[in-house]
């Protein structure tokens, strides 16, 4: 199945700079339809209002972390199949395992580049 380059992608990070970086890198690799949230609870609210083809989320945010968002998404019948990539500075093995056990599709450690982002997108949603 081909990738819908117009799909809506939700990016979640409490650092405005990081939202801009991810948005721009997504644009560089061909995805223009990007929405933003600054923590897990805001992201969850948006996801319940609108359908997203992919979520790219930071971990360490308040009040709701990226891991809690992931668990909420996987526990929600309507949202649970949404592809979810964690992009975080948390690089410890136990973090990767916790995210995987919670149902993450892929895991990018910060700092990252456009090539890594593209590689992980391909791994999760297919080649484009």
């Amino acid at each position: 199945m081909s990738v819908d380059m117009n799909m809506e992608i939700l990016i979640v990070d409490d650092y405005r700079t990081m939202l801009r970086i991810i948005r721009n890198l997504l644009k560089q690799i061909g995805f223009d339809n990007v929405d933003e949230a600054t923590d897990g609870s805001m992201a969850l609210k948006k996801m319940r209002e609108k359908s997203y083809g992919l979520v790219i989320s930071d971990w360490n945010m308040e009040p709701m972390t990226g891991l809690q968002l992931l668990k909420e998404v996987r526990a929600d019948a309507k949202l649970k199949s949404t592809p979810f990539i964690m992009v975080t500075a948390e690089s410890k093995t136990e973090n990767v395992i916790a995210a995987k056990q919670a149902g993450v599709n892929n895991y990018i450690v910060k700092p990252f580049n456009a090539a890594t982002l593209k590689m992980k997108l391909v791994a999760v949603i297919g080649n484009f």
Partner: peptide
């Protein structure tokens, strides 16, 4: 317990390490 990042370069898993764990 899981909010410890960022790790210092010598103590951090690289993207390749993380890919291997996944």
């Amino acid at each position: 317990d899981l909010l410890n990042g960022p790790q210092l370069p010598g103590n951090a898993n690289s993207q390749a390490d993380i890919d291997a764990i996944l």
